[in-house]
């Protein structure tokens, strides 16, 4: 009867998943969350702080924590790590200049022990913009191959503007978390 099995028991009852969305500013985190929830995405201000959305997805309840990505508030990300089941790292695939920043912030995040059990979904966003890097190119730049072998991860190209790829990504994430936590029922 370890800690894990207790957490499993509690979560199985509630069918809840805690998802943390992070990434550099201007990557489209809030737009993705609103798009998935079918809300209007035409007026979105840069996130000062964080938003929480509870979304019923398939048979699960997702608590999505969308945390602002401006440099000033990145140091507060760590306040949201506890009990995270799924980590969504959002990349602006058209922002070539800051890919280095993007990589180092992601590397820092993955060192975090409290996130070591979380499934990682990388969304290569803004695929609709001409000139954006493909998910394969993003995977290479972020050197995802070198990731710790125990990590469950996947990279999916998407566009929060058109909605393409979002469900594919979240389907994978939810399935992966479910198979870990609920041991497939």
């Amino acid at each position: 009867m370890g800690l894990l099995s207790i957490i499993r028991k509690i979560k199985r009852k509630e069918k809840e998943m805690r998802i943390l969305m992070v990434g550099l500013d201007n990557s489209g985190k809030t737009t993705i969350v609103l798009k998935i929830n079918g809300e209007d995405t035409s007026v979105i201000s840069p996130t000062l702080g964080f938003n929480i959305k509870t979304i019923v997805y398939q048979k699960y309840t997702l608590n999505i924590w969308d945390v602002g990505g401006q440099k000033t508030i990145r140091s507060y990300w760590r306040n949201y790590f506890e009990q995270t089941d799924g980590l969504v790292w959002v990349v602006d695939s058209s922002d070539l200049r800051r890919l280095d920043d993007c990589k180092s912030e992601l590397d820092n995040l993955l060192k975090e022990e409290r996130l070591s059990g979380a499934s990682l979904l990388i969304l290569a966003n803004k695929q609709d913009i001409k000139g954006a890097l493909s998910p394969e190119e993003i995977a290479k730049v972020l050197n995802l191959e070198a990731m710790d072998k125990t990590r469950h991860w996947n990279i999916v190209g998407c566009s929060a503007f058109t909605g393409e790829g979002l469900l594919e990504g979240f389907d994978w994430l939810v399935q992966d978390i479910a198979s870990r936590i609920y041991v497939l029922d």
Binding site: L96, E136, A139
Partner: peptide, 14 residues
């Protein structure tokens, strides 16, 4: 999918 790319040189692409 990504591992097919690893043989090529890193970072150069972007």
């Amino acid at each position: 999918a990504g591992s097919m790319l690893t043989n090529k040189q890193q970072q150069a692409s972007y």
